[in-house]
Design a protein around this nucleic acid. Structure first.
Lengths: 188, 188
DNA sequence: TGAAATATGTCAATATTGCTGACATAAGGG
DNA sequence: CCCTTATGTCAGCAATATTGACATATTTCA
């Protein structure tokens, strides 16, 4: 990491400016177009899996995100979900209502605080969430089958490092804890 | 890579089933929730940079994508852009028209085939595209400053491997070729 | 206990980005 | 000259997001 940064300090003149962006990102270095574009292409095809499967059920990407996190963290409250998705409660409410109406998710008054709603996947919801997750995992299986040994762990480190510093701990905790298997929160 | 796959072949009984999804993704293994969720969180924060900067200019994410690729590949035709973005020409046309009207992009009849339109960034367009790219590169600078030596190259490999197999060669070629500096296609 | 704060639900209006279908124009090619 | 291709455009619609305002139930605190 030292040599990574020292590349630029050693350079004698501006004409031989570093080929990487400065630490502050604003100066002479060429931006990293390759990574910027690969984020676009990789995400496009990654979410394409889910989109394609979900359209058979009349559900969109927004429904899937809600269902996914409810399935992963059974008992999640509305406020927690809003904090994860970073959308407004009005936006959430529209898709959540549809998931409740179509019996993919159920809500119960909070155990401690009855103002809260705790969300749980139904058996149907769990099945669908798992189907999509498996389809997406299939893509990752293909990915790591063609990459060297430590690639999976490196990928986790890379993606986590991209996340905003203020969110990183929260995200790391969520991603690490495997609540799905633990409390099988299927209700109704 | 051999040992990566052989982990599962060696297992004696179903109770000790592999902790990774099967190659076909449909069987007993737990899906890779961590990677699935990290893709969401990383992309959310990554594009957040661009969104925030662009809203000062009254431009949205769709405008940015068009401007970005026009800046990266000056002389791009409409058909090529549609193939990259995977949207309909009607969707493209709305945002492209706005970029033309507001002088971020210009179009000229194709050099060889005058039915085509070749798109070029204006000086203004180049400046904005570069501003956004530098902001996004700044995030990657922070990322690789906290990761070990080969992380940048590994990340490129990882993201490229996620892309649909049928698209991968095309994407790899685009990402590799650095046309931006080469033909400085600023017009008007 | 009663007032304030909190968690959620809901209504209305609007913006952005995508879609389908239909049709028009201009230019290349046999 | 006809057929195809590349693009432009109009109309309508759908999904997902936003802001602002207001209602309701419940908890907390003075």
């Amino acid at each position: 990491m030292d040599s990574f940064l020292s590349k630029k300090a050693d350079l004698p003149c501006a004409a031989l400016a570093p080929l990487v962006p400065d630490a502050n990102g604003t100066a002479g270095g060429e931006p990293w177009f390759d990574l910027i574009e690969l984020m676009f292409f990789a995400y496009r095809d990654f979410v394409g899996d889910a989109d394609q499967l979900l359209e058979n059920f009349g559900l969109g990407r927004a429904h899937h995100r809600v269902l996914h996190f409810v399935n992963r963290r059974p008992g999640l409250t509305i406020a927690e979900l809003l904090d994860i998705l970073k959308i407004t409660k009005q936006s959430l409410n529209r898709v959540l209502k549809e998931l409740l109406d179509t019996d993919y998710v159920v809500s119960h008054p909070g155990a401690n605080d009855r103002r809260q709603r705790q969300l749980f996947p139904t058996a149907r919801g769990k099945a669908l969430a798992l189907d999509v997750a498996r389809l997406q995992s299939k893509r990752f299986s293909r990915v790591f089958a063609q990459l060297p040994e430590g690639a999976r762990s490196d990928a986790v480190d890379f993606l986590l490092a991209i996340v905003d510093a203020g969110e990183r701990d929260k995200v790391a905790a969520m991603v690490a804890s495997d609540r799905t298997a633990a409390h099988a929160g299927t209700k109704r």
